[in-house]
Amino acid sequence: MSKGYISIEGLARSFPAPSGSGAATTVFRDLWFAMDKGEFVCVIGHSGCGKTTVLNILAGLDDPSAGVVIVDGKEISGPSLDRAVIFQGHALLPWRSVLGNVAYAVSSKWRGWTKQQVEDHARKYIDVVGLKGSEAKKPAQLSGGMKQRVGIARALSIEPKILLMDEPFSALDALTRGTLQAEARRICVETGQTVFMITHDIDEAIYLADKIVLMTNGPGAQIAEIVVNPLPKERARDSFHKHPLYYALRNHLIDFLVTRSKTFAAEIAAKAAEGRPHDARRPPVILPAGLEKPITTLNGSGPAMAQSA
């Protein structure tokens, strides 16, 4: 099995019981998963299954109870400017302007830069997310969508190797969400950005992701399988749902969230009885549309596989 650009190996996280006594709750355990450079991966799973916890570990904000995360050949420890985070709440500093928020990140990355260099660079990214003209505004003066744009500009401005996003659009109205999804996808595809994103919105995952990681319900959540998105890389926000493979994929994901995420333990027990035990180290990589044949390598996946299916 090839190790990807990011490799999550045997990751587990448990929290001590609230009272101090009693058993600790294991949020998830034995997560194995790898992704390649330039890939856009979405994780979906029910609320409380530990998605944010996984992302925090990837960001270096939290430590796993077991297992490691390897990025670009090195085990991570603690946060890094190589891994930018777009937070679930926008997490802008309210006493700083739009420019000030982005410039704060830029000056943290390039500490020797002059004020002018920092501001020029920050303005470039404010422009990328379409906020030109709002540089002097404070976060309180911005709409929810604009705040999240600033969050995106701040994350992109440090030119990270990996972008980590925790349900970045979940608090927005449908129209704004759609626009921002389209822009996020355009920017990430254009720059070949490696993205690890959490969502519970199925359409968002289908539109944005190259691969969709399905997590079972917690506690003790697992990666059930990794679904390869059969949609072509070129997809438009307003028409991707008309693609012939869209419904197969959507039904597969809904089926997972509605039933299989709850009954996954029984499912693997049944498969083990058939002589096909679930291997947590190699979660099945599958194409939807009832295609059961697991793709055992993570490499070479993508739209091409859809045709061969």
Binding site: A59, G60, L61, P79, V85, F87
Partner: peptide, 12 residues
């Protein structure tokens, strides 16, 4: 906490 996390992810 989220503001502190911003600083942490920026290695401040």
């Amino acid at each position: 906490k989220e503001w502190l996390n911003v600083a942490r992810t920026l290695e401040v």
